[in-house]
């Protein structure tokens, strides 16, 4: 009984998506809907295969991934460092935090026209936008994480003679980590979002460009393929972050192994 229920639980969530895809396939091949506007799933898979074999897909995928990772490194790295600095030093926080909070209120995508004028549509512009997008969630959550580490634990560390570096390494950083991960996962979402917009509007390569370029030739199959790839990349990044989180925070009650 129990086993059967478990199997059913595993299958149930997939029923609706699979049914939708089958319906879509039928609707498109039987021309209930215009297949030019809604190409059948099999056609999209076929297109994906052709683009893969020709190397075009990997080319664009590689460039997009590169932008995502480099942007995340730069923006996330800066956010992390500034978050640490302001979290640890009241002086730095007084000096910098209010300014950063002010800039945070500007939606970074609103800067696109300005950035195209300043930096053109080259790599720098895209990296800049992605960096800007991921900077704030990581900064805010690192800062918050450090500031909210249990003072009692820090005091305990002092009683036991931990020096500043040990206090940071053994108490402050691990204490801030759950919050930093919240920032990271939020940043990953913003990373792809920013990249989609930047590549769609101002680019000559990448998945976003591939979609935009396909629009010119009414290749709806390529457009849908691009959207699907973005969704998969987003999911992949989230899963990776979750795995790292589970390994790093294995001490945390919410990650405790349920037996």
């Amino acid at each position: 009984m129990k086993l059967k229920n478990n199997r059913l639980d595993g299958i149930l969530p997939w029923v609706l998506p699979v049914a939708l895809i089958i319906f879509w396939q039928l609707a498109s091949t039987n021309e209930w809907i215009t297949s030019r506007l809604f190409p059948a799933p099999t056609v999209i898979v076929q297109t994906g295969y052709e683009l893969l074999v020709s190397g075009i897909l990997l080319h664009h995928l590689g460039i997009s991934t590169y932008r995502a990772i480099v942007g995340l490194m730069i923006g996330g790295g800066l956010g992390f460092i500034l978050g640490l600095l302001n979290g640890l030093s009241p002086l730095a926080s007084k000096l910098l935090d209010s300014t950063i909070q002010m800039i945070r209120n500007v939606p970074h995508l609103a800067l696109i026209p300005l950035i195209i004028i300043w930096l053109g549509i080259g790599e720098t512009a895209k990296l800049f936008l992605v960096s800007l997008g991921v900077f704030f969630p990581i900064y805010v959550n690192t800062y918050h994480g450090i500031r909210t580490v249990d003072r009692g634990l820090i005091e305990m560390g002092k009683v036991y003679g931990l020096n500043s570096w040990e206090l940071f390494k053994k108490i402050i950083l691990p204490g801030a980590l759950p919050s930093i991960f919240v920032g990271l996962r939020y940043a990953l979402g913003l990373m792809w979002l920013t990249l989609i917009v930047a590549e769609t509007i101002a680019s000559d390569s990448g998945i976003g460009y591939m979609a935009m370029n396909a629009r010119e030739f009414m290749q709806t199959d390529v457009i849908i393929l691009s959207i699907t790839i973005y969704a998969l990349l987003g999911k992949l990044a989230d899963v990776l972050a979750k795995i790292i989180e589970e390994i790093t925070l294995k001490w945390h009650p919410s990650y405790a192994k349920k037996k």
Partner: peptide, 22 residues
């Protein structure tokens, strides 16, 4: 203290070992 102030990210034995830090 009234709260045990153990470090949640260290195991029990690692927490005790902090006492030998000096």
């Amino acid at each position: 203290f009234q709260e045990s102030r153990l470090l949640p990210w260290l195991t029990v034995v690692e927490n005790v070992a902090i006492g030998l830090n000096s």
